[in-house]
């Protein structure tokens, strides 16, 4: 409306606690989704690993889930689980599954057969072999999947503001509701979530390299 600067730093300075609160909510929403998503994905991937015929139905189903637009997925959930954290998390977790499962399986499949045989020869049982030999070797590919899932989830968490679950999207929505549109809130919310995604991605890349000094990162 008036010629105010694009970002009012004064507002930012005065509202650091609000911004921090939204950032923490964003991280929490993302963290819960990734933790639960990873747990479910490992479970499903191990099931597929043992029962190969399950791979197609599980991959197809999670693939369809991934294709459903976020607003639509939240919309399906709201009449059932309400405008709640549960609705947000069910949606967010759903989107991580296909990315994580695919990468876990690709990682496990990438383990050379002679390594498996050597492990068998050393007396590992199937689960012992999976835990001690195959998983560590699959780690770079799994973390690569985790990176994609993390960036995706951070972006999707901005949408959960539309069902009242806070996070940086809340700043965006509130900025949009103010007379004259309060650009500062919109840009702070949008840019911070982008920065968050880039930082999280780089951090995971560093972790991935540190964890697997023997393997060069594939992404």
């Amino acid at each position: 409306m008036t010629d105010q600067p694009l970002i009012s730093w004064e507002w930012v300075a005065e509202n650091l606690d609000l911004i921090a609160e939204r950032l923490v909510e964003h991280l929490a929403l993302t963290g819960i989704a990734l933790a639960v998503g990873t747990a479910i994905s490992f479970g499903l991937a191990f099931v597929i690993y043992r029962r190969r015929w399950l791979s197609q139905p599980i991959i197809q189903l999670t693939g369809i889930l991934y294709t459903i637009p976020s607003l639509a997925l939240f919309a399906f959930l709201v009449p059932i689980t309400g405008l709640s954290l549960l609705s947000a998390e069910i949606g967010l977790v759903s989107y991580t599954l296909i990315i994580l499962i695919r990468n876990i399986l690709a990682g496990l499949d990438g383990v050379p057969p002679d390594v498996r045989e050597a492990a068998d020869g050393m007396g590992y049982g199937p689960w012992g072999r999976l835990w001690a030999v195959e998983l560590p070797l699959a780690l770079p590919v799994i973390v690569a999947g985790l990176r994609v899932a993390t960036v995706t989830t951070i972006g999707l968490v901005t949408v959960t503001a539309l069902i009242g679950q806070g996070g940086l999207g809340q700043l965006i929505v509130t900025g949009l509701l103010r007379p004259g549109i309060f650009e500062t809130m919109i840009y702070v919310g949008g840019i911070l979530s982008l920065v968050l995604a880039v930082v999280a991605d780089s951090t995971l890349l560093v972790i991935q390299r540190a964890l697997t000094p023997w393997a060069r990162a594939r992404a």
């Binding site: 105010q4 507002w11 005065e14 103010r178 007379p179 004259g180 309060f182 500062t184």
Partner: peptide, 11 residues
């Protein structure tokens, strides 16, 4: 009050 918060962008 509304004007100070929305037009002047005060907290």
């Amino acid at each position: 009050l509304n004007s100070r918060v929305t037009v002047d962008e005060e907290a």
